[in-house]
Amino acid sequence: MSLIAAEITKRFRDVTAVDNLTFSVQGGSLFGFLGPNGAGKTTTMRVVLGIIRPDEGQVTWNGTPFRRLGRGFFGYLPEERGLYPKMRVAEHLEFLGRIHGLDKRKAQIETERWIDRFDLGELRHKRIEELSKGNQQKVQTIGTMLHDPELLVLDEPFSGLDPVNTALLKEVLLESHKRGKTIIFSSHRMDQVEEICEDIVLIDRGRLVLHGNLRQIKRSMGRQILRISLEGNEDFWYKIPGMELLTSRADFQEFRLGEGVDPNYVLREAMQAGQVLRFELVEPSLDQIFVEKVGVGA
């Protein structure tokens, strides 16, 4: 079971938003879809969901073109949130259930279940426009899951949620994951992606930059990040060519080791400079990989 996006290209007049992009998402995985602003994430998601047709390439699920999968197959939370402002919460959720293929009874039952779960009981008869942004987002997120879709595509699902609701949503997502549902989500918060996702794809300017299992990607980047904590001359590293200071924190300093710099040599130099409290070679964080690959801050 897997989603395969093969050689997707989408142009808007003279701009190529997605350029010959190929990636696959293992069925049942939690998949992170990353890229800087304007990289073509939203366009790619729209192509995957069949909202817009690619100029070239196609997206399939187990060999079936996406357009032939039923309405109930997807749940989509776009980055630009939106609901019908005049409709009432329960009525709106029921409507979203219905357009995703639930019959009337099932839509009502699921609406009740999710309203309970997300503690929206008091707001049930309020109009959407009377709700806070956070609650509107809760309603819309529920709307994407009400019909228990096989594939959830969530664009920045946590932005705008308070910690309690973030935790609740995470719990719900992990639960669906356990039941074998596929979840693709995009976020600028690399720590969240790191926390949840197993596989990622990173795109920039419509092109593929990185793709694969997050752990393997990190490993393949090499243990080039060094954390040192030292009592003594902290500036000892100035004379070692190829060392680059990344961050200087109260508890440690973090360096990137250049090509051909021997960590053991650095350790010996550090020991001469003072008492070494910490010396650790670590994998780069997703944040660092992102910055390195894309060249701009996330």
Binding site: R46, L49, G50, I51, R71, F74, Y76, L77, P78, E80, R81, G82, L83, Y84, P85, L96, I99, H100, Q140, G143, T144
Partner: peptide
Amino acid sequence: EKSSRIMEVMVSTV
């Protein structure tokens, strides 16, 4: 529907 941005959700299913 466009200005309230519900459109994108709608066209993903309908």
